[in-house]
């Protein structure tokens, strides 16, 4: 649906502030140049661009931010963060959206349901990293 009613109430402000608190970044530093999305090597698998996620956080659009897959596709390669002209740790904002979700529902990935074969064959570095990113 390409319509949004914009309001700046308590809910919007709290969502924005929580993301700012978790990431330690100033969301308003972003001036929407789009370089983060331009350099993101996973954008073909994202349903929303990285800069759009940031813009929506500025506007406090919690539902639309959380319903995107963008932050779950992000692999924390940090290319966006090192190239941001405003020195925003963009990847940290993606992490903050993940964390925001995980602090409510801690299991994005159900470890107990992973096949034993997967657990055995994968290097521990992959498992540790994945669980740290996808569980609360």
């Amino acid at each position: 649906m390409s319509y949004e009613y914009i309001k700046f109430g308590k809910e919007e402000r709290e969502f924005r502030q929580k993301i700012e608190e978790i990431s330690g970044e100033n969301i308003f530093s972003c001036y929407q140049c789009g370089k983060c999305s331009a350099g993101c090597m996973f954008s073909d698998k994202m349903d929303r661009t990285v800069n759009q996620q940031i813009l929506r956080i500025q506007l406090g659009q919690k539902e639309k931010v959380l319903s995107a897959n963008t932050h779950w596709v992000c692999a924390s390669c940090l290319t966006c963060s090192v190239r941001c002209p405003r020195d925003i740790d963009v990847a940290a904002i993606m992490e903050a959206i993940r964390e925001y979700t995980l602090r409510e529902e801690p299991e994005k990935i159900k470890i107990s349901e992973l096949p034993k074969k997967v657990l055995e064959k994968l290097p521990n570095i992959a498992l540790v990293a994945n669980f740290r990113k996808k569980t609360g």
């Binding site: 090597m41 996973f42 073909d44 698998k45 596709v73 692999a75 924390s76 390669c77 290319t79 990935i109 992973l114 997967v118 994968l122 992959a126 498992l127 990293a129 994945n130 990113k133 996808k134």
Partner: peptide, 20 residues
């Protein structure tokens, strides 16, 4: 030379890693 391999997504989103 620094195009991310997909990293830890290998656990549950293998398709991301394979395309990278």
């Amino acid at each position: 030379f620094k195009y991310c391999c997909g990293s830890y997504h290998i656990v549950d989103q293998e398709n991301i890693v394979s395309s990278q």
